[in-house]
């Protein structure tokens, strides 16, 4: 389903959910939960947003039922650790590639996805100072390296 323009701020988190439905349903679930919570704050009044959010809620309820035996879903504290570990794994993979001078699309995507998953961590509460810094760095790096590669420049 298409994300309404009013909810553009969560479109990449929703896309990340779709990309992880098979690969890691726990990540897919919490990305949807973030999109849901944030989407409700952005716009839950216009008909297109209400329709989108209602469908998103249906998906979340269904996923929670299907994954009820998974502790990362039934206990949010376990889910918090799962998302944080996954986000940092992507971050350190990309950081290692960066420090080794290996610049490619996959590392850019890893930096960017880690920043999105650090956003998702906000559903569990305020981000730690360390995670705030990781998020800022990952987002900046993904944009910087993307622009360098696009312009044929070597990132510094």
């Amino acid at each position: 389903m298409a994300v309404p323009p009013q909810l553009k701020a969560v479109q990449h988190h929703y896309k990340t959910a779709l990309e992880h439905d098979e690969r890691d349903p726990v990540v897919a679930y919490y990305c949807r939960l973030y999109a849901m919570q944030t989407g409700m704050k952005l716009d839950s009044k216009t008909p297109e947003c209400r329709k989108f959010l209602m469908k998103l809620m249906d998906q979340l309820e269904l996923m929670k039922k299907e994954l009820s035996t998974n502790e990362s879903i039934s206990q949010e504290i376990v889910g918090n650790a799962h998302i944080e570990n996954y986000a940092l794994k992507l971050f350190f993979y990309a950081d290692n590639e960066d420090r080794s001078g290996r610049f490619h699309k996959n590392m850019i995507k890893s930096f960017y996805t880690s920043s999105l998953l650090l956003d998702v961590l906000c559903v569990f509460g305020e981000l730690s100072e360390e995670n705030l810094q990781h998020r800022k760095y990952a987002r900046w790096k993904s944009t910087y390296i993307h622009n360098c590669l696009k312009n044929g420049e070597t990132p510094q």
Partner: peptide
């Protein structure tokens, strides 16, 4: 009509908030 549409929107908003709280075991 505007008032009716607004009432429907509010009711659906409440429904979403309740379902979200239930999903997160907050009620």
């Amino acid at each position: 009509t505007g008032t009716l549409a607004s009432s429907v929107a509010s009711a659906e908003q409440d429904e979403l908030s309740q379902r979200l709280a239930k999903l997160r075991d907050q009620i």
